[in-house]
Design a protein around this nucleic acid. Structure first.
Lengths: 260, 260
DNA sequence: CAGTGGTCTAGACCACTGC
DNA sequence: CAGTGGTCTAGACCACTGT
């Protein structure tokens, strides 16, 4: 009976803690392909037997791998090598006007092109005072229409987004309606005379909050992108700020930079 | 004697595990400002006394906060609320030619402008076959000059970068020299007739490897950005691929997107 | 039901810090 | 030196999974 553990042993005299040595060996087995995506790791009991250590030592080792995002523990089933989800690439021209022509919002149009089944839920719309982080980017304080929603692909949540539009622009328009109509709110903004001229995006990454873990069904060890996009019209006025949280293991962000 | 723990207790009958409840209460104290940046948390012994639980229960709670990046444990001293490092904003025009005129490489010029003391070390240059990830972006296989280095600000490492330039362009030029001269390798590429026309950047985020933790002196719970930039010359040829790893808590990436 | 991981207890010894 | 966190042992009971 051969096992991924064959020949592996720890050196109790080493400077490196035993649980780290065990984590190292399991990590090497995963990266080296001796344990593939979806494979089950030896159970805690098997590891305790093999290495001759206490359970907490094994659990500390497994915790390292989970924190690194390499494994996923399933209660009552075992610890598994995590499968990498399909990656979604965002092109930097995804908000170009030509992509808005067919009357579809950016997320829907893009996903259907890549063959995934897009879904939007948890849509909420209300009006409030802009938080300072938002009013700073909009360039003025005052009430805003807030549109929040969650996007999923093939049933898996991948991103939450909250848009802030100045109320003097959006109040009593389809933008303040849960369903803003074909082309999404960018199409409505242009119909209202706010031709979109440019966007800026600010990208940060961090570990998720507990609320984000729930909303995006995030696995442990997966960071999130926070992407704050500001849309400017032809007059140079900021007409929307969109605050997006994305599962980092599901996205690659592509950008095009000028050299001149 | 007042303490941040005053009035805090756990409900052993709750569905939520005791160590999570304790972590919740400490997190709330930090976010609510009752514990500020740099403050010491109550010691493990004090928490054991206060909550009347075993040490592992406390340590599990503290581990949650450390994984979230909220605290930092210092052996023999205590557990402290982590200070947020100064943030470095990268503008999307940072490689524009006009910024290259004064004869300084992008990182140096930019840092001095922001008042920090930049430093570059661990410079290594050699020639090898391009890894497939790189040759794919360069558009052809073959030998490449590999330049790797580490950037620091005020003595703190913030970023490692590895550039790959096709050897048929860079061999026996200053680009293959550890010190490529004023303006960096982009200035040299342009002198060699490769006028830089555009750049693409691909941004991902993930938890760091152990090697990255060492190189960038990363705190636990801090993800890294991986930014792969490809530089194209006026003929449309990819002349450099730069693979960068950045501490995510030290960076905000800014991009400008066209609307047309 | 047996086997799995989740939580928790009650100790032990060690290494590091600061006085 | 006392106080701190780092590592480790040897148990216990529980909740969840699959047969």
């Amino acid at each position: 009976m051969s096992s991924v553990l064959d020949g592996l042993a720890v050196d109790p005299a080493s400077d490196r803690a035993v649980f780290r040595q065990i984590a190292d060996q399991l990590r090497t087995a995963i990266r080296g392909g001796r344990l593939s995506e979806g494979d089950r790791l030896p159970s805690e009991a098997a590891l305790i037997d093999h290495y001759g250590v206490a359970r907490m030592t094994i659990r500390n080792a497994l915790q390292i791998l989970e924190t690194e995002g390499l494994t996923r523990a399933e209660h009552g089933r075992g610890v598994y090598v995590r499968r990498k989800p399909p990656v979604r690439r965002l092109a930097s021209d995804r908000f170009a006007r030509r992509h808005r022509k067919e009357g579809k919002a950016a997320f829907i149009a893009e996903s259907e092109q890549s063959g995934a089944r897009p879904d939007v839920d948890m849509i909420r719309v209300n009006e409030m005072e802009a938080p300072s982080e938002i009013s700073g980017r909009l360039g003025h304080a005052g009430p805003v229409i807030v549109r929040s929603r969650r996007y999923s692909l093939d049933g898996t949540p991948v991103e939450t987004a909250t848009s802030y539009i100045p109320a003097d622009i959006a109040r009593d328009t389809p933008i303040a309606d849960p369903n803003p109509g074909p082309g999404g709110i960018y199409a409505r903004l242009e119909e209202l005379g706010h031709t979109l001229e440019r966007f800026t995006e600010e990208v940060t990454a961090r570990m998720p909050t507990e609320a984000e873990v729930r909303l995006l069904a995030l696995m442990p060890g997966v960071p999130v992108f926070r992407l704050i996009r500001t849309a400017y019209d032809a007059q140079g006025r900021a007409v929307e700020v969109c605050d997006t949280i994305m599962s980092a293991d599901a996205y690659v962000l592509n950008y095009e930079l000028p050299a001149h």
